[in-house]
Design a protein around this nucleic acid. Structure first.
Lengths: 226, 226
DNA sequence: CGACCATTTGATATGGATCAAGCGATGTGG
DNA sequence: CCACATCGCTTGATCCATATCAAATGGTCG
């Protein structure tokens, strides 16, 4: 239930570079991105809750978890961010969640003020900012819906979500641990593990390795997913 | 667990009027609001999930619930909207939730295109749109955090939220039923009712009527709320 | 007054949490 | 290269918070 120990937390001041060519279909693509590419170790904190939100981030490679911790140590993971995802964008001046790299991760870091200034001048940039937040809102609502479902339904929904976001074909490699999945789904590791075993037993998936998922019967998962 | 029967659903075409003087500190206040004031009966549908999102709404009086229903009838209430709150604003062209009046309710209805056009021309309007969505996102994240807590903690958090949003002093009247509260908190009516009784027994609140709440020991509730 | 609906309260059932081993992969030092 | 510690995961046994089922109570409106 406890978050992993934090490793080095560095302010985003590493090698300042001209950003890699922005992909134009991406949501931050409309911005003229000048930022730093930063690497983070496994479990390294990218920012903490209530810290000043001076930067906006985009995952280049790896995976990020965004979470909150209650006084007694319970951790709720609000979102996983995967390559291409933008995160850390806030309306206010402080981050509302903490963010950590799940695996070795590189992110593109852009000053928030650059983005806000651009939005003031160009309406399509403003619309992109709105769009990013609206997408997060939809994901959050979807996530809320998850949390009223049974363990089987939650795990099935999680697998389908991950399959859409990182599957090439029918199989994929999970970047996150069982504990991360549990804290995302509001379950314990034991229940996540048991449920995956059940799904394997029911021939809905197979688990050639603990983090490797093969979808064997997607319609069975779909049936569990509303 | 079932949503109440829907009553008449009318498209927003009633008495078209110049909007009442917009309150300037309000988030839609920056817009030059021209819209219709529309009344809705108790339990009347304002819009349904997947319907075209042609209008944006602002509660003038009454209360609104925004919810999703799963195939098997489980209902998740995403948000309650109270006087002053704006709702129904979507980035896409369709509503992602249904909305119903909880009590007799009047709302101000504004064409979405008016708002979007204004946002394209004026950056402070664009920022207001973003701000509205960001506020919803924060509430959604707060709500997600609720759903991993115990029944007592959920109910305490709910009471504190409602107290902030509609209390004059230390007491307030809930507009919504126990079923609505249950579907918001991911509990059953029985658990909600029992938990309220417990809190009354513990002298944290008193319940002079089933929908009237008096906060008797706010710090006791705060202690339950992270 | 009587019907209806919302709410409370009581008795029992159950899904997932908790407690407790065991297991397999990975890495480290001898 | 192997013994052994560590870590992430799985599996088993038991417990408990909340759901479910059932009934009583109370408030509202005709």
């Amino acid at each position: 239930m406890l978050a992993p120990v934090q490793e080095a937390r560095r302010p985003p001041e590493t090698r300042h570079v001209r950003a890699a060519p922005p992909t134009c279909h991406s949501l931050l693509g409309a911005l003229d991105l000048t930022g730093a590419v930063m690497p983070f170790d496994r479990n390294a904190e990218i920012y903490g809750e209530n810290e000043p939100a001076d930067y906006v981030y985009k995952v280049i490679s790896g995976a990020v978890r965004s979470y909150k911790v209650l006084h007694d140590g319970r951790r709720q993971i609000d979102a996983f961010y995967l390559p291409g995802d933008v995160f850390g964008l806030e309306l206010g001046d402080e981050h509302t969640c903490s963010a950590e790299a799940i695996t070795e991760t590189t992110v593109l870091v852009v000053r928030r003020t650059h983005v806000l200034d651009a939005a003031e001048r160009r309406s399509e940039v403003a619309r992109n900012l709105w769009s990013l937040t609206a997408r997060d809102l939809r994901r959050a609502q979807h996530h809320t819906l998850l949390l009223i479902k049974s363990a089987q339904e939650r795990v099935a929904a999680f697998l389908l979500e991950m399959s859409e976001r990182l599957a090439a074909g029918t199989a994929f490699e999970l970047p996150m641990s069982r504990q991360d999945i549990a804290d995302y789904l509001g379950l314990t590791i034991e229940t996540v593990s048991r449920t995956l075993s059940q799904l394997e037993g029911a021939a809905a998936i197979s688990l050639p390795a603990s983090r490797r998922i093969v979808l064997r019967d997607r319609s069975a998962l779909d049936r569990l997913n509303d």
